[in-house]
Design a protein around this nucleic acid. Structure first.
Lengths: 243, 243
DNA sequence: GAGTGGTCTAGACCACACT
DNA sequence: GTGTGGTCTAGACCACTCC
């Protein structure tokens, strides 16, 4: 008689779950080192190999970062290499190093429309913050974003805070609200620039632009950000690796 | 005295290389099973664990496919799940299962322009084939592609062959030319439909479209296809998962 | 039942970083 | 030197597939 176990999950996945739990609880913060594999193995009463396999998966998911000889660290959007991890727009020529700059325009309170509520997995009418900003490459405006955030999660986000933060938004969210963005999903269309977009990106009205809608998820696949942006693709393109 | 080894590569990577070599040589063909881990371990004189790690990597790269209890198989574009692996355009509503249909328009011989030569990593002026086709979702034309292929690799590709093939192009390339596509890179812009594109996709001239340029690579990161397409995003969007 | 991949363990040694 | 992750091995047992 063999037991059917529809909920079977191997040990290393359970360990992964426990590590994830510790991360969510804030036991180890972004950028910090987590305990060594040996310590974790002792703590969870499994072999080092099992912990290793759990960490391998989490490193593949960009949740942890391994550094040989040093230790394993909690991934952070503060890390220069992770800073614009989700931005796929790159200049046609020259440097990928020339990091874009985020210019906040305004930030206001509102109630979630049906569309926003659906994207964020919240009730329609829930208080949200709507943040608008422009992204500049070498002084040129290239991306215009409208960003929808559940107010509950981003208590205290203000224009002042945004203006004094000269780094990526996600690193701000991480630092101020303890929010770790794990993955995102984008839906891309081609649209004609309306009046507002044309003004924002300094292009002619009617210019074809990329419309990029993004939902960003934190631990446990919980959506915590919805944004809709327009990308100018004169001198830039959206680069995507297919595997 | 320790030895500096700038070309150091772990055993499992060398094994990976040997398996890759066997794949390139055609020892095992797409869709077929490769020998069991035990057999490979004996063949290469390493432990099963080392073979396993090599195969793990190759499975992550979509080069091999593991099937528990059955064996490890060479990935194939003939597999329904892999068929449109590189196509990111999906309908706004309804089924992802409704597979698109490829309608060939024409196929002609030409010489590689500088642009095509650069993308394909060949000499300017090298003979190439230019294939045009339309992709239909439920009878509606949604993608127009112009596909550039080094003639040397695709000897004997003809309109007749294309018309009788009612599956994906990559599965045709795999079956007829033994070409395994491993990865691809796309560059996406927003453009206005020109006369030709408008006619092809049955939209108004000037309609914003996605311009998608794709270079596709086979084993050893060798480019073997370049295509430029226009995607209609009325009722469809380009879906991209960011990790 | 036989064969395959999947999990788990334990131990040895290597490469790397810090101090 | 010490401690970390990285590699490699050998063996046991489990889960799945096919006969």
């Amino acid at each position: 008689m063999t037991q059917v176990s529809p909920t079977f999950s191997p040990l290393y996945r359970q360990i992964r779950g426990l590590i994830l739990q510790a991360l969510e609880s804030g036991e180890w913060r972004p950028g910090q080192a987590i305990p060594s594999e040996q310590e974790l193995a002792a703590r969870f009463n499994v072999s080092q190999g099992t912990v290793r396999k759990a960490i391998d998966e989490m490193a593949a998911d960009n949740i942890l970062v391994r550094r040989q000889g040093r230790g394993t660290y909690v991934a952070s959007h503060t890390d220069p290499r992770q800073m614009f991890r989700f931005l796929r727009l790159v200049p046609e020529e020259g440097e990928l190093f020339a990091h874009p700059k985020s210019i906040p325009i305004d930030c206001r309170r509102a109630k979630a429309t049906q569309e926003a509520a659906c994207a964020l997995g919240i009730e329609q009418g829930t208080p949200i913050l709507i943040l608008r900003r422009v992204l500049q490459f070498e002084g040129k405006p290239v991306v215009g974003d409208e960003i929808f955030l559940p107010e509950e999660i981003y208590q205290g986000l203000s224009m002042e805070m945004l203006q004094f933060w000269n780094s990526s938004l996600y690193s701000l969210f991480e630092t101020r609200f303890g929010l770790r963005m794990i993955r995102a999903q984008e839906r891309i269309r081609a649209v004609a620039a309306d009046r507002a977009a044309a003004e924002l990106l300094q292009v002619d009205e009617g210019t074809p632009l990329l419309s990029v809608e993004r939902v960003t998820y934190t631990y446990g696949d919980k959506p915590v950000e919805w944004r809709r942006g327009v990308y100018s693709t004169a001198g830039y393109y959206y680069l995507n690796d297919l595997t």
